[in-house]
Design a protein around this nucleic acid. Structure first.
Lengths: 348, 348
DNA sequence: CTTTAGCACTCTTCTGGGCCAAGTGCTATC
DNA sequence: GATAGCACTTGGCCCAGAAGAGTGCTAAAG
């Protein structure tokens, strides 16, 4: 990374102007255009000199010798650092968002609406993910016999997620057996994380050698049938607004690849979890997604962890074109992340 | 519709050849090409005469005076009638499909996998919809108190669909109240359709003027909070494989519109329900979707009702380009429709 | 009456040249 | 350091011409 420090106030101003012009026009910006729009009457020649420096420093590129300049990933990163935390969300967006999210009652619904509203207010796809099992405290399980060997399991976690699943067992358990089992689990493990519960049940089942212990047998059967799985990943990953990514310049082949990736929601989840970690507090902007996934060239990710109190319950993000309204999107993401805590805390 | 009857065996043969060539090449097909590929050594001139007749009869069109011919919607309809029921599904597809769908346990999961596998074996998007409430017989409800004024409702229908929902009530019901209510519903209404149940509850609540009847009050509260809603439409509409629709020829603007429509799953549901009715038995092919939705120009719908026994439980379909492998897709859709009955019947 | 061969005609697509606009880099000047 | 001037590069656009594909029509052959 050459000469990052070289950026003085004049350079910064011009760089910002170039980026903003490019974002709104989509075309390489030349010195002439810039000098005309810039309020300080700098001449094209001057600007050319500065531009030349900026190319040197790695902030700009030229598609070919005699075209204007285009911002590099480095430039976007710099730009985002500059503007971060500067803007407020427009009142209309604010009310759109809060009206949509008002009155949601569990995390799944919240996230679903979040992905939708994000795709509306941004020019990208809205993504929202509920973080899976391992961080969720068990609230309550319920088993209900549906027929011979057939059981409906409902697992509710503290965060408000509800997982239901119908399973076939190898043996037939009566509703009484099931109630005994669920009472046992609820009485012993309420508040534990689901993963811990599963591990502990496995241990106790193993320990209780006695084949005569009916309860343990039921538990074993239920455990093995996957009754406590909170996986079912697709159910808790919401991706909306892919049509926003269809823009004229895009080449068909890549677009197709991109859509395919976005449809494999697990891959989107991977992407988010790679870049959004629990520690970090605020909105994170990742420029240069093509390093992780080549079909995501020219896309950026703007994401934030979704917390309630200290606990991370999921993530939300916008995946959109490098040429996007950063201020706006960042503010929107951050606004929703805050709402998340607020709305779900009062439901606790 | 002019001179439909005019089609003799020779015309039919040539028409079929044109359609198949066009489907595989995507370009207007000319008399020369056709004469070369056709086994009977017909000369281009002869073919031209026939083509001329076919244009007259409304089966072919020419993009411009000196281009080859392109099949019209009428031609595709004719073609589909000709080939229907002719082919068998390739063994590899057969096993892909049955392996994917084997072991599904409720309709939701079945449909989700169906939409996925359909998008894989066809060149279009796979769609699967569970028909909502009104035809579903109630199996079982369960209410569970989650906190002050907060109740989890689980509604299970005979078809294996599970609807869960967390609601806020205006009054606080104890778990005992809830159990009384659910027992009452299960005892009185098991086997009714959900809609009937709702109507009947409303009636009884209305009738039981006595404000002292605790049970009726609970029921009223639960009913009004929407505990019995089996709506939540998005949850039961599965659309997969949109990337299949990104093809070179497509214009960006229309593509964008199309994706937007496909993301509004309710609109897709509308489309299916408009064309697939309960009466009809087998696979239905709808050519000319643009009449219903202009953005769906050049798309066809190949769908079938999903029944178990006599009862319609949903629909499945492929929405793909007019230029698709009809034989293959029709066979696949029909194969899955049959599997549906078979797999879910044995789980009954 | 059907089929075929021949031929002139139409229309699209591809190609190459020339022109223009935009933008650059360099140098000389203020 | 900023500016003005100037020669140079490059992609986009327009146009004309050639090539290719296909048609319709007519006349002849089966």
């Amino acid at each position: 990374m050459p000469n990052q420090g070289q950026i003085g106030p004049r350079e910064r101003e011009i760089l910002t102007a170039i980026i903003e012009t490019y974002i709104s026009s989509g075309e390489p910006v030349g010195s002439r255009t810039l000098s005309r729009q810039n309020k300080d009457g700098l001449s094209p020649a001057t600007i050319r000199n500065v531009m030349s420096d900026l190319v040197e420093a790695g902030f700009l590129e030229q598609p070919h010798t005699s075209a204007g300049r285009v911002p590099t990933a480095q430039a976007y990163r710099y730009y985002v650092d500059q503007i971060s935390g500067k803007a407020l969300l427009s009142p209309s967006d604010q009310s759109l968002i809060s009206e949509t999210l008002q009155g949601t009652v569990d995390i799944q619904q919240f996230l679903e609406r979040t992905s939708h509203v994000l795709s509306l207010v941004s020019s990208g796809v809205g993504v929202a993910i509920a973080s899976s099992g391992f961080e969720n405290a068990l609230e309550h399980v319920h088993f209900s016999r549906q027929g011979p060997n057939k059981v409906l399991a409902v697992v509710v976690t503290r965060s408000g997620m509800v997982h239901d699943r119908i399973m076939r067992l190898h043996i037939d358990l009566s509703q009484t057996d099931l109630d005994t089992a669920s009472n046992y689990i609820n009485a012993n493990f309420r508040g534990w994380t689901v993963d811990k519960v599963k591990a502990e049940i496995a241990r106790r089942v193993e320990d209780a050698r006695s084949e005569y212990d009916h309860l343990m047998q039921s538990l074993k059967e239920l455990y093995e049938s996957g009754a406590l799985a909170t996986g079912e990943p697709a159910k808790n990953i919401f991706v909306e607004g892919v049509s926003n990514l269809v823009v004229k310049e895009e080449d068909h082949e890549r677009l197709r690849e991109l859509l395919k990736t976005l449809e494999e929601k697990e891959r989107v989840a991977e992407l988010l979890s790679a870049y959004l970690d629990t520690k970090q507090e605020a909105v994170r902007v990742v420029i240069g997604l093509e390093e992780a996934m080549p079909e995501m060239r020219n896309l950026v990710l703007i994401g934030a962890p979704a917390r309630v109190g200290e606990e991370m319950r999921g993530s939300l993000a916008v995946i959109g074109p490098t040429r996007m309204d950063y201020q706006h999107t960042i503010t929107a993401v951050s606004y929703i992340a805050q709402l998340f805590d607020k709305l779900l805390n009062e439901n606790a």
